[in-house]
Amino acid sequence: MNATNDQSDILLQLDDVHTHIGAYHILHGVDLAIPRGQLTMLLGRNGAGKTTTLRTIMGLWQASQGRISFDGQPITALATPDIARCGIAYVPENMGIFGDLSVRDNMLLAARNAPNADAIDGKRLAWIFGLFPALEKFWLHPAGKLSGGQKQMLAVARAIVEPRRLILIDEPSKGLAPAMIANMISAFRELKQTDTTILLVEQNFNFAKQLGDSVAVMDNGRIVHRGAMAELAEDAGMQARLLGLSL
């Protein structure tokens, strides 16, 4: 069930991570290794602990036990801004964009090394516009006026406006029309070619199987399966057992 990775190939590692939110014990000893340069899907039923895992990695919720390491260095006790400075970006399920600000100003806020919009790396911006043409079209428009799919594009674009070593993304296809999901799949395929490591939470199994290199499945706050995404995609019985899917 578990693939063995050389430790040097692991960018992010969670060892026996527990998270409490108030009186609730959400993560019950999560063990998870994210291979460098791969897109890892984190799957599971609603309430399994997937979003809590991402938020704990980012320090938005503090692990109450266990260790989180990024490129071999402990980050468990770091504050969220310090974790971000390590080269980790987070795209939350609610997208986290600023609706009153323009698309340009949303991008500028994410481009920490650019004092103004003209200082954003032009070559990288052109690449992002190639992925998400609507962002160039609505560059000066308030982000709150974008469609749901365009807001999701902006949320992902903010995460990649500067090179990141790891991107955590929570349900990017949620609520999107099929054409917008196809666009998002194409964008992630191109992003994978840049050797960016991605940990992606998703409920849409068709989306997941088209993009994932490796997969981890959560249930009741624990990782219950690890392996190749292709293996899970080909095994309907395993899907039904782990995810309750009948495809």
Rank of each mutant, 00 (worst) to 15 (best):
G59V: 11
L42V: 03
W127N: 02
G96C: 02
Q150A: 09
L60H: 10
R104T: 12
A114I: 07
G144V: 00
W127S: 02
I97M: 03
S69Y: 05
G96V: 00
A117Q: 02
N106S: 08
L140A: 15
V161E: 04
D105P: 00
A119F: 06
P133T: 04
S147E: 12
V156A: 08
N113F: 02
I34C: 00
M41Y: 02
G149F: 06
G29C: 08
N106E: 02
A119M: 01
N113G: 05
A33H: 10
A159Y: 10
A114F: 01
W139T: 02
D31K: 09
I83V: 15
V161Q: 10
A114N: 08
R112T: 11
L54T: 02
T53N: 11
N106K: 00
H25C: 11
W139P: 12
H28C: 12
V161C: 14
L101K: 01
L39H: 06
A119P: 07
G49A: 12
L32W: 08
M95A: 03
M153H: 11
A79P: 04
P142G: 00
H28W: 10
I160K: 04
I75F: 02
S69Q: 14
G29S: 07
G148N: 05
R158L: 07
K50L: 07
N113S: 13
A126S: 15
